[in-house]
Design a protein around this nucleic acid. Sequence first.
DNA 1: CACTGGCCTGAAATCGATTGCAAGAATTTC
DNA 2: GAAATTCTTGCAATCGATTTCAGGCCAGTG
Lengths: 333, 333
Amino acid sequence: MEKLPPRIKLADVARLAGVSASTVSRVLSNPGLVAEATRSAVIEAVEASGYRVNHAARNLRKQRTGSVVALVPNLGNPFFAKILDGMGRELASAGYDLLVADTMDGQGRHIALQRFLDPSRADGIILLDGLVPAEDLLGGIEIPPVVTACEWIEDADLPRVMFDNHEGGRMAVRHLRDLGHRHVGLIGGPEENVLHKARLAGAGAAAPDVRLTVFSGDFTLQAGHAAAMQWQALPPAERPGAIFAFSDEMACAFVATLQRHGFSVPRDVSVVGFDDIELVSHLSPALTTIRQPKREIGRQAARIILERIEGRDVPPMTLLEPRLMLRETTAPA
Amino acid sequence: MEKLPPRIKLADVARLAGVSASTVSRVLSNPGLVAEATRSAVIEAVEASGYRVNHAARNLRKQRTGSVVALVPNLGNPFFAKILDGMGRELASAGYDLLVADTMDGQGRHIALQRFLDPSRADGIILLDGLVPAEDLLGGIEIPPVVTACEWIEDADLPRVMFDNHEGGRMAVRHLRDLGHRHVGLIGGPEENVLHKARLAGAGAAAPDVRLTVFSGDFTLQAGHAAAMQWQALPPAERPGAIFAFSDEMACAFVATLQRHGFSVPRDVSVVGFDDIELVSHLSPALTTIRQPKREIGRQAARIILERIEGRDVPPMTLLEPRLMLRETTAPA
DNA sequence: CACTGGCCTGAAATCGATTGCAAGAATTTC
DNA sequence: GAAATTCTTGCAATCGATTTCAGGCCAGTG
């Protein structure tokens, strides 16, 4: 191992430029305070020495961390990738780092979040999991500002950034009704999930003359497959002629399973998904679905946490509009 | 705004326990050095006061950051989600935070990575982008240890964690040959991409009697669609009877586009993908593909960067084995 | 009984940048 | 030309935890 030269610090630059460390610091963070001649000498010394600030020292002194942590229920779920993407760009352009962490362990148990709810670890928190106990976020201790995105926590008074799930649910069922369907099957999420509840309520509010049959699910491919098996097992007269799945993955698996058993979509059954993940528009038949602007949710959540970090007030709720992507899996009854 | 009590620090706990700050620090980081009686008094004081260490201060003093940064070419690509997942869990269990950042801006231009290549920002770097100029990683300045994962940098001597792309390519073409295909179309990635080169070489090495026709691509759905249009435009005698796409997304789009134009898979053409993203096993027909153990790649990369952080030597290359997932999109010629 | 060694503990230095304060220089005002 | 401002700049304190060093205490040994 070669011996590395010790890292350059502020004092070294100061010596090189013939000024004090304070002056160098000012040139770097508040150049207006320093006389033109001194300033350029300092800049030259900074460049000549290849100085880079030590973040730990700066953060300690300034009592901030320069990073925001995103807590997701499952990092492996591709759904969050686009959201993190939007978030990451927005934060990066404001000079913040994005830290990500899972709220669940390998076995799907919620882990202790105390570790992240600490002002010395992150300046702000973006929470994408609606099932975190509210008391974790309010307990007497001092925690950084929090905003919830996508999901939200019902009994906590935190700013929310979310898609209009109720309207999305309404829109899907309304679309099917307009096609003449009067019996719609829903493939839902976990019952305690806030997204599930909102979409279900929206679906129910869409039209009084549409009968709804709920197949339970959990947003996964497996759940879509299971729902298709249940659907087939029903006597033909009892089978809903249309299906609204609360995630595109469930919708895809539902369609594929039926196809494999000789049914045809949309001839035998119409299907609407939810999310509009990119892939589904490139399948055959292309999935009709409710689009969630995922990147935009990430961006907005980032903007809002930045406002909160600056101490400004933010709207209690930012609602993003749904959009029906009309494609090939729905047809008249 | 309510007035918050000032944050508890080490000195406060020390006063409460009737000892010095040094002793409290020792109890927390090296309990063996402290007498049993003192230790329990300190622990009690820590709990009573709700003390939490200040990371900036600790990091400054210890000259480390407690975090590892993963640099990905496109955070929005769901392919990376599973990798980050494996990585995140492994790092978390070692007490490290995972920072993520994109190596590209919104327009697909590479951004300056200097910002992350800084020992005061991260203790280690996991690079998932093979197109970063090698000089950025070697230039005179001191940077944290780096490992490359998935992709790698040809002219840099950095530890690599990767899937055996050559063997994956070989396996796919061999499988098609075994089914009787003697003309295989490849839908590749960008020409300068290392994954593309390795898979292409593997495909070429599979069998001397198989003719290969390359359709250019870039791993995206759009590229798969474009390749399907090109395929159809060929005179039937010139159309490869089998296709090996270098990503599942391209394979899916290829299949769907052909289906939409009245062709049938695998009757008219056999298709093999690459990656084994979860969704493709739940389509109809289910995609035959080469599985990449994505979570495992993340885990291994994390392990290796942790070793490097500890200063230990690591193998220059960690190769993960391919596996052919035989499903429904391939059939005898 | 004096001495050596081990065990605990506290004082103080240290990590490196930021910033309030005050002093000296330069400029303006009357 | 003296007094009042305004600019610049450096000194020294500060952020909070860790760690070196040295000293106090106690037990064991010759």
